[in-house]
């Protein structure tokens, strides 16, 4: 790491543990993990299933709380927040992209993208403008009125990305974003995420088990048995 004053990390895990169950049935999903991610990074998290990477993503996304240790998001201790507090943090600073897209069925692309803004209480006309803008950024202008069933997998994932970035988040969490897509479409989605990272400075943390996909990230973290096994920078992989 460079010398000199660095901004505080966007994400800081200090000895974070996540234990499910009690006594005999106790399962340790995360065992005292230390991790710092700075603003603007593009991180891929890899590891076999059961290695704790999904648990880590849930904690990073404030969907789950650690049972031990501290999670500081932009200096705020997320572990001390109640459910609504975590929701507020999440909806203000974090965007989600899921493997299964998780769009609302029978709801148009525009309405899906508007959804996070609805819960922020934004007036309808302003919502529509921002949502249309986000759809344009993912290259889906003209598809505003399509429902998920009228869109291809790649297009659905673009709608999901538009929904994630419509609130201008600091952090984009992507859980196997290309898991349900073919190779060519996967590449398109990765180009989109890379562009969002480079051009808009959005921090991207992505879980994947495909090396091809992880190759797009500049930092790859490998989990195993609830611990970080390997954490290394790689030359900004494929050209965009």
């Amino acid at each position: 790491m460079d010398a000199g004053p660095l901004p505080p990390p966007l994400i800081a895990l200090h000895g974070v543990s996540r234990v499910y169950g009690r006594g005999e049935a106790e399962v340790v999903a995360l065992a005292r993990v230390d991790l710092e991610i700075r603003q603007g990074e593009f991180v891929a998290i890899m590891g076999p299933s059961g290695s704790g990477k999904s648990t880590a993503m849930n904690i990073l996304g404030c969907l789950d709380t650690p049972t031990g240790g501290d999670y500081l998001f932009d200096g705020v201790s997320a572990g001390d927040l109640d459910r609504d507090g975590r929701t507020l943090l999440r909806r203000s600073f974090i965007g989600f992209v899921f493997q299964g897209f998780n769009l609302l069925p029978r709801t148009t692309a525009l309405e899906n993208v508007e959804l996070p803004l609805v819960y922020r209480g934004m007036p309808a006309d302003r919502r529509a403008v921002l949502a249309a803008d986000a759809l344009a950024r993912v290259g889906l202008s003209g598809r505003e009125d399509h429902t998920p069933s009228e869109l291809s997998g790649g297009q659905q994932q673009r709608v999901a990305i538009a929904r994630a970035i419509v609130t201008d988040p600091l952090l984009l969490l992507a859980d196997e974003p290309t898991g349900n897509l073919d190779t060519r479409t996967s590449e398109e989605i990765m180009h989109l995420l890379t562009a969002l990272n480079r051009e808009r400075g959005i921090t991207v943390v992505m879980v994947t088990h495909e090396p091809d996909i992880a190759a797009h990230a500049r930092r790859v973290i490998r989990f195993k048995d609830g611990r970080i096994e390997d954490d290394r920078l790689q030359a900004a992989a494929l050209p965009c």
Binding site: G61, T87, L88, R90, F96, N102, P105, Y119, R120
Partner: peptide, 16 residues
């Protein structure tokens, strides 16, 4: 349930 999960994940508060 899944729809509710999506809404909660993308920022719906409990009372919403």
């Amino acid at each position: 349930t899944r729809e509710i999960g999506i809404r909660l994940a993308i920022g719906a508060l409990e009372h919403q």
